[in-house]
Amino acid sequence: MSISVLDALRPAKKPALLTLVLVIGLFVGAWVHGKYLSDRSPVQPIDFSHTIHTTDNEIPCQHCHIYADTTPVAGVPSVSKCIGCHKSLPDVREGPEILKLAAYWENREPIPWIKVHDVPDFVHFTHKRHIKAGLECQECHGSVETMDRVTRVVTIRMSWCVDCHTEKEVENGRDCWTCHK
């Protein structure tokens, strides 16, 4: 009669399987959270639609995000910039969302937009370099021009940055200190 290792392990089989199921559950949960539960599309203080501005009215991105090709920051338009158009064009003076904008302007208060794309503080990222390199805004931000509310289509992680740098053979693009600060 031989002694089977499997037999000896039999009492441990069920706890092992239970643990395996638990771990699989963990991954599933984290994935579900990342995909469906995290706020990739936060509700903004004003229900601003890029579709109306960019697709319907054909305003180019950098008309409002004026710093994108000259500074590290693309720049969210100033309140004066928004009200500038909305005051001078008669057919966009009314409407509940535009009145909200007017209220911010009246009180000289900035609009507290919620960040959709957030790069951690230890990362040096510059819009200027990427635009000068010929990237389209959509390559990172997705088709914002068709979004009524901006949704983040990518997960901003180091691997995502490095993959692109590798693929495009960016000069020193894989040196840590190109992006870390």
Partner: peptide, 28 residues
Amino acid sequence: DVSVREKGVMEKCTFCIQRIRIAKDNAK
């Protein structure tokens, strides 16, 4: 332009790499 470091990491002179980066950026 420079990270604020946290507990548990080593740090040292970088030859002000952030200034090197700005100079390279301007040169580009």
